[in-house]
Write a protein that binds this DNA or RNA. Structure first.
Lengths: 203, 203
DNA sequence: AATCGGTTAAACCAAACGGTTAAATTATCT
DNA sequence: AGATAATTTAACCGTTTGGTTTAACCGATT
């Protein structure tokens, strides 16, 4: 038994989440999950009828864990600079606590983008509204970068990439020193915000 | 037969590369590759003794295809601004031509980072030298950003992220319009360079 | 005509896969 | 005590996996 607290049903969900995130859908077998949870394979099907159903539930939950921040921050009434600072701080913190999310989500979405529309809707995010509100802001504050989509991709890329490419970057630039890389990620919460604010400031 | 030009041995390599990149190691079976190449499964083992060996060869080749650019540009004698412009242009072009590389490499490296040191060495890249040379440049040109590692991650993230997260971004910000997203990627070759140059300019 | 490498077909292997079933056991609650 | 739910055990299903083997076939070379 990996976990004694919480019901078995929840334990399965928690353990399956870890296994799926580390090995992906294809790389995970029901037996692996059962072993990791210290239970029998039959019990997995007893609670969640199939591998696909179990995975769908987990993926949807992971998705909801990081998508909504986008709307929350950029629909608020802060000035642009503050939005940038708050967002990078919050977003990078989410990934520091759940470092496997980026690569997991991108990996599975690239193989299986069909249900993406549903996932976004279920996460309670309306990209159109966020986009148009962001565009207003960019025009009102008279910054360098006018295209809200380029802005968004820059912001997300700077936050997410160091987690998705961690093995490569950590080896190439940090001599595989995990502690140093963790510190580097902490630094980035300020670094990214300042970088973006500088980049879009007119002069 | 998918391809009539070139030897069967090369055809296998080419086809296997596509299949592996699209479905990942775990998501690919030898039968899938044989079918895609229009040959018999036995022939795969005739040329490449095992799935692992075939994959290793392909992965190493893909790796060599995008890593060396880093050194080539940043060890050259251009001024920093030009390095940034040349690099973003070249790097984004590589991924426009091979859009599956980023997610494929990050996915497989996250599951299997053991041989990464060998891969980097075989690609003929010495990260230490690149890093120290870049640091000199950043100091000499007196820019805002002094840490070559933050600079590198920013640069790579801005170039690579829109390819790795394409399904998500395309759906969220482009209403799933592929043509529009392709145009967006072309735009980024300039956009990213100007963004970075602005961000590190002192004022 | 004989040889040789490339190629196919088909059968086969042991192992693992997702999934099901039935029965027994244990724990929980009324 | 009896009923109900959770859990285990183990066997089983059909399918697929990576991989091997054997025999035959084909086209070109010698």
């Amino acid at each position: 038994m990996t976990d004694i607290s919480g019901s078995t049903e929840e334990t399965i969900l928690k353990v399956a989440r870890e296994v799926f995130m580390q090995h992906g859908y294809d790389g995970t077998s029901m037996q692996m999950i059962a072993d990791a949870a210290g239970i029998n394979k039959s019990l997995l099907h007893y609670y969640y009828r199939s591998k696909e159903k179990l995975f769908a539930q987990i993926f949807s939950h992971v998705f909801r864990q990081f998508v909504p921040h986008l709307g929350e921050v950029f629909l608020s009434e802060m000035p642009l600079e503050q939005k940038i600072r708050v967002f990078t701080e919050r977003y990078i913190d989410v990934f520091i606590q759940h470092p496997l999310i980026p690569i997991f989500v991108m990996q599975e979405l690239s193989k299986n983008p069909q249900h993406l529309a549903d996932l976004i809707r279920d996460a309670g995010l309306n990209p159109e509204i966020v986009k148009s509100r962001l565009q207003e802001t960019l025009e009102k504050e008279d910054v360098m970068l006018k295209d809200p989509r380029q802005f968004m991709v820059n912001l997300l890329g700077l936050c997410i990439f160091p987690f998705a490419a961690r093995p490569l970057i950590q080896r190439m630039l940090f001599d595989n020193d995990e502690v140093a890389y963790d510190a580097f990620l902490q630094q980035r919460k300020n670094e990214v915000a300042e970088f973006i604010i500088n980049a879009i400031r007119k002069q």
